[in-house]
Amino acid sequence: MPDLGDLYQQLIIDHNRNPRNFRRLEDANRMASGDNPLCGDRIQLFLKVEGGTITDIGFQGSGCAISQASASLMTQAVLGKSTEEAEALFRAFHEMVTGPRDKAPDRQLLGKLAAFAGVRDFPARVKCANLPWHTLKAALQGAEEPVTTE
């Protein structure tokens, strides 16, 4: 039986309660929205990308603690990073929450995002953690349709 504490870590609870970068960017040049209608998780992501670097980022949304904390921690992790670095984080995060259990997450690269390692043991919740990241990817690629991870 997976441990609940691994899923609802204090860091996740805290970011759910006080999400960081929870704002709409008026001067955003990349935007995307993610919507998991079955869950009711929604996020809107705003980015300012200048010279290949994410110089500002904000999000708005509503949904479960996992999706909202994931969005909050993601905005902190990618702010100031190049779009390539952000995509590398996307891959590392994705692998951490969907990859095999015996493979340890790259804590060096992931930093605080490693708090989501426990999500892997709750298959029904993986899509919640992933939604902000797929939304980020869509924003960077200039996708117009809302993304979903359901």
Binding site: M1, P37, C39, G40, D41, C64, A65, A124, R125
Partner: peptide
Amino acid sequence: GIHAHDVGTIVDQEGVAIRTGH
């Protein structure tokens, strides 16, 4: 202040199966 899916996941840990969603 707590989304239904978080409720569902946590009560499941206690063996309680309830539906969450729309």
